[in-house]
Design a protein around this nucleic acid. Structure first.
Lengths: 222, 222
DNA sequence: ACAAAAGTGTTTGTTGTACACCCATGC
DNA sequence: GCATGGGTGTACAACAAACACTTTTGT
């Protein structure tokens, strides 16, 4: 099996859950009416990565999304029906680019803020908890903030993303200095428009430069 | 399935492999006479962690060993017989405490230095490569060097372990300063004996202090 | 003029890095 | 006395952290 923790930013950091069917709709299914992570079985010809991507696509119609395996959960009691082994992934998406769609076997689909979670099915609360830990760890060591932003963004937006992931405030001056020093941001000739304050400079992430730097032993770190 | 990469230090950093049977002994088994990682199936009542521990015990008679899950490998072509999904672990042991034992279905068992590896079965070379990456990453952020040393050790031994894990030289003065500053080493009233140079002070790792420090947000780092 | 966020500069203390050097022991 | 690894001290550069300040926009 695979389970996918989908992170996106809508005001704050949120994750995507799917509502399971009621007792009447599916008498044999455990955790009726509970919210659960998107996921499912691995097909015979697939890798677990492919299965994760497929499941995500089925729910969100999103392709080419940042996704990383982080842990495999197992044990005889995870699912009351039978022992299961499930590899868990976290994915980073931009919610505005998705087309959510509750499939036949799901009643509903929705975003939940980390501080207002519903009751979750199975051990999905544990999976979510670990996903968040890993995401935070990752954010400090690899430039993944961009995955949650549009191509063009301001340093203010970028800082905000990192603050939401890490759950703590960052110093503006230091954040900018550090990020610009790395040289992986490309300054565009565009600026923000229509805001009632000084418009911000827009940047984009230069993946090529980052990849080159990585080869030379450079280590991203916040 | 589970696979276990067992690391130990014998002169340099080595890993434990098991020799598969020959074509004559087991005509239907793939990779005859190849060396392979210890591993096997997950029993119905087990977690993958328990399966990893069991497999390790069966080969080495070692219990209570540091072991960590690091990745799940999958895909239809990993095993020529059938698609398999295997969760991989790395373990840290002290080779002198083990009782190696080639089980019925294995011809031989042995330690191999990372720079003199034999031809490996399946995708075990990939698994080993990732295990080493993860081990190095871990070594920089968590005090695991002790797992490869006896209870009592000198700072020189400790530094040597880290150098072997990381594959690069470390500055003696800085290494000592940093480690002692953390306060997780307990100075013993013993010193090294019978060496033809100044005898070294012996220490032991104080896990309780480390756990307390961790709670206060302390982060081990080299 | 004011609010609001963008953007800059500076100061202070801490840490990383690279050395040079002294110490205790066996041979 | 010499070789060997243990153990210490220091100087410089780089960096983290905290904070105050200036700039540019819309209302």
């Amino acid at each position: 099996m695979v389970d996918v923790v989908v992170f996106g930013i809508i005001d704050d950091l949120r994750t995507l859950f799917i509502k399971r069917q009621s007792k009447e709709e599916a008498p044999d299914e455990p955790f009726p009416n509970h919210w659960a992570l998107p996921g499912g079985h691995v097909e015979i010809h697939e890798t677990v990565e492919q299965a994760g991507e497929r499941e995500l696509f089925e729910e969100t119609n999103a392709r080419n999304v940042f996704m990383e395996q982080f842990h495999t959960f197992s044990g005889p009691d995870r699912d009351p029906r039978e022992p299961t082994i499930s590899t868990a992934f976290y994915a980073l998406v931009r919610p505005d680019t998705l087309v959510l769609e509750a499939r036949s076997d799901a009643k509903d689909i929705g975003w939940f803020s980390m501080n207002h979670l519903p009751k979750l099915a199975f051990d999905h609360a544990d999976i979510l908890k670990m996903a968040l830990e890993r995401l935070r760890d990752k954010a400090l060591r690899q430039p993944i903030g961009f995955e949650l932003l549009p191509k063009k963004f301001s340093l203010g937006q970028l800082q905000s993303v990192y603050e939401k992931i890490l759950g703590r405030a960052l110093d503006k001056s230091n954040f900018r200095r550090d990020f610009l020093r790395m040289g992986i941001l490309e300054e565009l000739s565009e600026r923000e428009e229509g805001v009632s304050h000084r418009p911000s400079q827009l940047y984009r992430f230069n993946k090529r430069t980052y990849d080159n730097l990585k080869k030379t032993g450079f280590r991203f770190e916040i």
